[in-house]
């Protein structure tokens, strides 16, 4: 008997919500917002499940939705966050979400370095290097050509290294 959509989303949540939430959290640097966007991702998945044709893996499809809701938020939110902080005398509203998302000490710098990159660079590193998606899957999630994924990753990695050096992450080049 085929599973109903609710059951499928329930199982998908159990399997992928952790990875999706961490991806979103790294993109937006806000724990609560990370949860809200994860919520939106699964609601959209439920609403649009009929359009999922099974050509891609369910995980890839879910990340594609997560990418869409996150990038939409990032585009709109950036000016808002900056001006709110600047004009309303608030503290930086976007620290690392460490209080709620427990991050081990040895990777905090790395987490911060990635967070400081611009969205496209950040995203391609997360998907390719952290989540382990293939070039093809990454191109599906981001709606980019495979070549663009390669080129962007190629540009992003040196910038990440630069960010890490700024944060005091020591760099040793192997001979």
């Amino acid at each position: 008997m085929p599973k109903d959509t609710k059951t499928i989303i329930d199982e998908a949540y159990e399997q992928y919500s952790d990875a999706i939430f961490k991806y979103i959290c790294m993109m937006v640097r806000d724990y609560q917002q990370g949860q809200d966007l994860t919520h939106e991702t699964f609601i959209k998945a439920y609403e649009n499940y009929e359009s999922f044709e099974g050509k891609a893996e369910l995980k890839t499809w879910l990340f594609r939705i997560a990418h869409n809701v996150t990038i939409d938020y990032v585009r709109k939110k950036k000016p808002l966050r900056l001006i709110e902080s600047f004009l309303n005398n608030k503290k930086d509203p976007s620290p690392l979400p460490e209080e709620n998302l427990k991050i081990q000490e040895d990777v905090k710098v790395l987490y911060k370095g990635i967070s400081n990159l611009k969205p496209a660079y950040k995203e391609v590193i997360i998907l390719r290097k952290i989540k382990g998606f293939s070039i093809n899957e990454t191109s599906e999630i981001l709606h980019w050509s495979e070549n663009k994924v390669k080129v962007t990753l190629h540009r992003a990695m040196p910038l990440l290294k630069k960010e890490l050096e700024k944060e005091g992450y020591e760099h040793e080049t192997k001979q």
Binding site: K129, I130, K131
Partner: peptide, 18 residues
């Protein structure tokens, strides 16, 4: 040490470490 290989390994482990 963030040589390319080590950096890749650390990135792979990032999810597990949060």
């Amino acid at each position: 040490n963030n040589s390319k290989e080590e950096l890749d390994q650390t990135l792979k482990s990032l999810d597990e470490k949060s």
